[in-house]
Structures are given as C-alpha cells and as structure tokens.
C-alpha cells in the first residue's frame, strides 16, 4: 500500500479545499454537535433533516442539469444491494445514536473541540478493519440478496428526473413549512 501512497498534488489540493468548505459548513450548521444529532432521532431538533434534505434538493437540481447539458460525464452511484444497504443502514443508525456523530461529522466535531469524537474515530477505524475481515463471509451470505445494479429512481419509474426532483422539492418544502410552524408555536414568546 505504500509504494504508491499519495495521489497527485492537484487531486489532493482539490480534496483539501472541498474538505475545508464541507467541515466549515457542517460546523456552522450545528450538525457537528452530539446534542443536535441525537435530538434529531428523538424528534426534538430537526436540524439534521432540514440540512440533508436541502442539500439533496439543491444538489439534485445542479447535478441533473449538468448531466442533461453534457457538462458532466455521468453519475457516481453505488449499486443497489437490498440486503447490504438495508442491514448496513440499520447497523449504521444504531452506531450513529450511540456515538452521536456520523463519520464526517465526527471528523468535523474534532475541529470544534469534541474529544469524544476522537475516541469515536478510533472505534470507527477498528470497525473498518474488522469489516474488511468479515467481508468475505458477508460477500457469500448477504451481498447476493437483492442485487439490482447501479439504478436510480429515474430508471425504476421511467419518469423524467425533473418530475422526481419537483416532487422531492415540493415534499421537502411542505415538511419544512410544517416543522417551522410547529417550532414557532412551541417557542416561548
């Protein structure tokens, strides 16, 4: 692994700039806080959901527009494997609430002084190493369950992506409107 350890400087520089902006935004958004993340799953603070859904809608508009105009060569999606995606997601949710950060927000939390996030990252590295050892077994047992390939909901529904994006945007706006009204009503005058 060490004969060819570093990518080229330009790639590293672009990654570094992206990381700088991403970490900055996550911290300003408050989603680097244990309290904010855990309280999302207790329905007490909806910052995580608002941030993620906004990023998804805004991101989708730009990425699908660039795809349509041939400005990008293609998408970067992971193949759908029902067993692995669902079981992995269920395991991930347990870890996210116990740790109180996800992998990216744990790193960003280190930057704001959260020492418990450093311990969480150590656990995560061990988790990654153990996963690599468990992978051959999972590849034989769970990975073959529901292998659907690299598909999107555009492939599944045969609709224009713009209908899906419009639906997502309307759904997200409705949810935001409802959440804001509820939070406004709950706030002491």
């Amino acid at each position: 692994m060490f004969s060819n350890f570093f990518a080229d400087p330009k790639t590293l520089m672009l990654g570094a700039i992206t990381g700088l902006i991403f970490g900055f935004l996550l911290q300003k958004g408050g989603v680097t806080r244990y309290n904010v993340i855990v309280n999302q799953f207790r329905f007490k603070d909806h910052t995580v959901l608002k941030t993620m859904l906004t990023a998804i809608v805004v991101g989708a508009i730009g990425v699908y527009a660039m795809l349509q105009f041939g400005m990008i060569s293609g998408l970067h999606i992971k193949g759908a494997e029902v067993g692995m995606n669902v079981l992995g997601g269920l395991i991930f949710g347990v870890g996210m609430v116990i740790l109180g950060y996800c992998p990216g927000t744990a790193l960003a939390a280190v930057g704001q002084g959260s020492r418990d996030a450093i311990v969480g990252i150590a656990g995560a590295l061990v988790g990654a190493a153990v996963y690599a050892e468990a992978y051959p077994l999972l590849a034989r047992t769970i990975e073959p369950l529901g292998k659907l390939g690299k598909i999107t909901f555009v492939d599944v529904t045969h609709l224009s992506p713009w209908w899906l994006i419009a639906g997502l945007a309307i759904g997200a706006s409705g949810l935001f409107y409802w959440l804001e009204r509820r939070e406004h009503a709950a706030r002491p005058a």
């Binding site: 992971k78 193949g79 494997e81 692995m84 995606n85 079981l87 992995g88 997601g89 269920l90 395991i91 991930f92 949710g93 347990v94 870890g95 996210m96 609430v97 116990i98 740790l99 109180g100 996800c102 992998p103 744990a106 311990v119 969480g120 990252i121 150590a122 656990g123 995560a124 590295l125 061990v126 988790g127 990654a128 153990v130 996963y131 690599a132 468990a134 992978y135 999972l138 769970i142």
Partner: peptide
C-alpha cells in the same frame, strides 16, 4: 463502541 458499529454499518451499506 458506537464508532465501531457506525463504520461497520457504513462499509456494509457502501
């Protein structure tokens, strides 16, 4: 422990 579970799940899900 949470970090361990988190990354195991993340890698499994991809």
């Amino acid at each position: 422990i949470g970090g361990f579970i988190l990354l195991f799940g993340a890698r499994m899900a991809g």
